[in-house]
Simulated assay, not measured.
Amino acid sequence: MSYQFMEPFTFKNGVTLKNRMVMAPTTTMSSFYDGQVTNDEIAFYGARAGGVGMIVGEVANVIASGKGFEGELSIASDDDIAGLSRLASAMKANGTKAVLQIFHAGRKSNDRILRGQQPVSASAVKAVFPEDSQEPRALTAAEIDEIIAAFGDATRRAIAAGFDGVELHGANTYLLQQFFSPNSNRRTDKWGGDRDARMGFAKAVIASTQAAIDQFADRPFLLGYRLSPEEIETPGIRLDDSLAFVDMLGESPVDYLHVSMGSAHRTSLNDKSDHMPILTQIKDRLAGRKPLIGVGSVETPQDAEDVLALGTDLVAMGREMIREPQWVEKVLDHDEASLRYQLSPSEMDELRIPRAMQAYLKGAFYSVMHFTTDPNTAADYQNAAAPMEGFEKKM
């Protein structure tokens, strides 16, 4: 059987993917204490490269204040480039394109992770989730300018390390989302105010990263943006807000838009009378201006085809790529019968899953990983937020 997701895809800037399958960012929590790349991370991505058209690597912080969890990658220093270069090389096996996600965690951190420093955000407003969140300190105007510049510096380092692009992580309640959200942004200066004004930080970060690409890239280099379409707090981002944000992205320099959801077929979490899939609404608002990556509970080849049928251009898999590193290769070989849709705890070393990640999967992610030892039916995220989206309590 021939699948649409096996067809190549070319971005407007000339980067061509050999197929439309993308490995979504999957946090391994396995970097060294200072954010340097480990051999465990290189082995994890090396085992999953070569089949998919593109890998979006796990998030890396662009500045020390942006660290969100232990074992997180850093791209905050030129000292990080050598290790990141090895990581990019591992991801790029057999023509797979390698994109690195970059971010600042903002208030989604704590003083333990930040070595005694208070978390920062747009405003001094404590997050509702997780319940043990700490109140952040509002960033000064000078600090905001420093962070915007840091995104550009991180992009320069990603280019030097050999990546094919960067993806701005504006989803899962991190800093880019915090500036857009009326929940976390109560500022009265130019970085706050009405919905359009709250887009200002994202616009400035996009401009900073694009300027670095224009100055330093010696090859076509992708700039992606990932967003979460809704928040469940009040006040918070609603779907209409995100559709306005999508309009802005449609006119921006970004090369693609990536939506973060536990299910690709999700409808609105806040408006239960709205039965149209969110991805379809975003696709309609984009109106062909930018390619769209759909993600969420994609496991089987038919699942991938169904996501393309919603109007997306590319399909991303996260959890399934953890379970089945050779997903694309097996589909190409007409060997779908051997695809792993469950994960055996005894096979995680064989699958090159780092030990820190194993503990996380068996903890906060247990309900969504289809463990062979799990007697319960896996959670369905068609009408609910998933753990990775920032709404559930951390381990």
Results as ranks from 00 to 15, higher is better:
15 V>P: 07
16 T>G: 08
19 N>R: 13
20 R>M: 10
20 R>H: 12
22 V>T: 06
22 V>N: 02
22 V>H: 02
23 M>K: 03
30 S>Q: 01
33 Y>I: 11
35 G>I: 01
36 Q>P: 00
38 T>N: 09
40 D>Q: 15
46 G>K: 15
48 R>G: 11
49 A>V: 12
57 G>P: 05
58 E>H: 11
58 E>M: 12
59 V>N: 11
66 G>W: 11
66 G>K: 13
69 F>L: 05
69 F>I: 05
77 S>R: 14
79 D>G: 08
84 L>T: 11
84 L>M: 15
86 R>K: 15
88 A>S: 15
91 M>L: 15
93 A>W: 06
93 A>F: 08
93 A>G: 05
94 N>H: 12
101 Q>L: 12
105 A>D: 09
107 R>W: 07
111 D>I: 04
113 I>W: 08
113 I>P: 00
118 Q>P: 08
123 S>R: 04
125 V>L: 00
127 A>L: 15
130 P>C: 03
132 D>S: 09
135 E>I: 12
136 P>L: 04
136 P>A: 04
139 L>Q: 00
142 A>Y: 08
147 I>W: 10
149 A>R: 15
159 I>H: 07
172 N>V: 05
175 L>N: 08
180 F>E: 14
181 S>V: 08
189 D>N: 07
189 D>R: 08
191 W>K: 08
192 G>V: 02
193 G>T: 10
195 R>I: 09
201 F>E: 06
203 K>L: 02
204 A>D: 02
216 F>N: 01
217 A>I: 04
218 D>I: 00
218 D>N: 13
221 F>W: 12
222 L>E: 04
223 L>A: 05
225 Y>I: 02
228 S>I: 04
228 S>Q: 06
231 E>M: 07
238 R>W: 04
243 L>W: 08
248 M>S: 01
249 L>G: 00
255 D>M: 03
256 Y>M: 06
259 V>E: 03
267 T>M: 09
268 S>C: 06
270 N>W: 01
273 S>H: 12
277 P>S: 13
279 L>K: 06
282 I>D: 12
284 D>Q: 15
287 A>C: 07
288 G>M: 07
290 K>V: 14
291 P>R: 09
294 G>P: 06
296 G>C: 13
298 V>L: 14
299 E>T: 14
299 E>R: 12
304 A>Q: 11
308 L>V: 10
308 L>M: 06
308 L>S: 06
316 A>Y: 01
320 E>G: 00
324 E>M: 07
326 Q>P: 03
326 Q>E: 12
337 A>N: 01
338 S>W: 00
338 S>C: 09
340 R>C: 05
342 Q>G: 09
344 S>G: 14
351 L>H: 12
353 I>P: 13
354 P>T: 12
354 P>Q: 12
355 R>G: 02
357 M>R: 09
357 M>H: 14
361 L>K: 11
363 G>N: 14
367 S>K: 14
371 F>W: 08
375 P>R: 11
376 N>F: 11
380 D>F: 03
380 D>S: 06
381 Y>G: 05
385 A>P: 00
386 A>E: 01
394 K>A: 09
